[in-house]
Design a protein around this nucleic acid. Sequence first.
DNA 1: AAATAAATTTAGACTAATCTAAAAAAATTA
DNA 2: TAATTTTTTTAGATTAGTCTAAATTTATTT
Lengths: 218, 218
Amino acid sequence: MFSDSEENYLKAILHLERFSKDGVSTNAIAEQMNTKASSVTDMLKKLADKRLVHYVKYQGVTLTSLGKQTAAGIIRKHRLWEVFLVEKLHFNWDEVHEIAEQLEHIASDKLIEKLDRHLNFPKFDPHGDPIPSKDGIFPERDKVLLSDLKVGDSGICVGVKDTSSSFLKFLDKNGIALGEKINILEREEFDASLKIQVGEETLSISHRIASNVYLKTN
Amino acid sequence: MFSDSEENYLKAILHLERFSKDGVSTNAIAEQMNTKASSVTDMLKKLADKRLVHYVKYQGVTLTSLGKQTAAGIIRKHRLWEVFLVEKLHFNWDEVHEIAEQLEHIASDKLIEKLDRHLNFPKFDPHGDPIPSKDGIFPERDKVLLSDLKVGDSGICVGVKDTSSSFLKFLDKNGIALGEKINILEREEFDASLKIQVGEETLSISHRIASNVYLKTN
DNA sequence: AAATAAATTTAGACTAATCTAAAAAAATTA
DNA sequence: TAATTTTTTTAGATTAGTCTAAATTTATTT
């Protein structure tokens, strides 16, 4: 249907739309995709021809509903494959992104349906990000940043804000994983660092760390 | 490492080498790949530059040992994915080829290692074809064509020679599947058709059919 | 509002993979 | 072996995706 490159542009635009009220700028896309603005312009014309985006010269783009659907479908595939890689093949959650980048372009509706069933219809990926349904709806979850909790609160780790490999590695090293229960023991006023309990372990984490971990508190 | 197109050419050449003593001809490759001879010539030069084939103008090609290794690696990925699709996602064996054609180009050694383990190191794919090891060795199995057996013989279905969708559908419809035990009850001299028993069922199959099903007899 | 800076688009070029049509080499046939 | 046919290669185009450099438009500053 669409080329890998087209699909990657749609994904990038969907991502950027979350931060910008009106159209997404050519430069923003170029930066997101590690490419040049001129290449982006060329592609935007192509996507507009295919009714995937609304594009007005010099004014940036927005996804059409077809574009949104398509982009959500790619995110869906990406995140389902991530679940597969972590749950069935036992990859660490910091290793799966690159591989899922490739797998997300495999074209077969039936494959994704069967994969979804095989994984028991997961609603969130290993980073806690929502997996859109077949018709492009993103499920929501009431989650809160670890840094927003107060001493005495506790919750279950359900995701991260920063998904960089270095950050995920840090979490792994310190026993902070999806599903792990975390208690807030102390807060240091000076630098907003926290003393927390994870399983049997007690550790201190900076505000920077705490503001990138999502908990479900109920 | 190599492009999808390059990988597909290597696969085609490996396949064709099995039928031709010396070099594989340009036309044979073109036919196998549904492309034009001129495109093949262009690609052969590229593959030769990359030390994947020995190519002499007007004399066809043979794979170098690097080329063979690489081609075997692609076959390995293709067949492991086929096992996954059939055993884990419950596809029928006639549906998996196209999807595996795409999956075979996913680049990640670690992925294939983990997939192999997940599937319990299978030696044969759902069509009974051997899965080469990491270092390119194809396992062998003593199998015999159903049409070569005599009345009273029996065996376990371990593969097919014709892997076309229509043939596989026919087998499915008649209960002939991998692992199924088959007894030869009668042979019709006139047209070499066979009366066989599969599970509880008895049926007649033409010589054409029988000469495309492999059994393990022991 | 004019001048300057930043963002965006256009023009033209490049690579990979393909094609058609023509030329060249090899194989076959008479 | 000479003529003919088949196979293969070359030459020149085409498409998708990218790039650099120049031109144009929009935004910002003075």
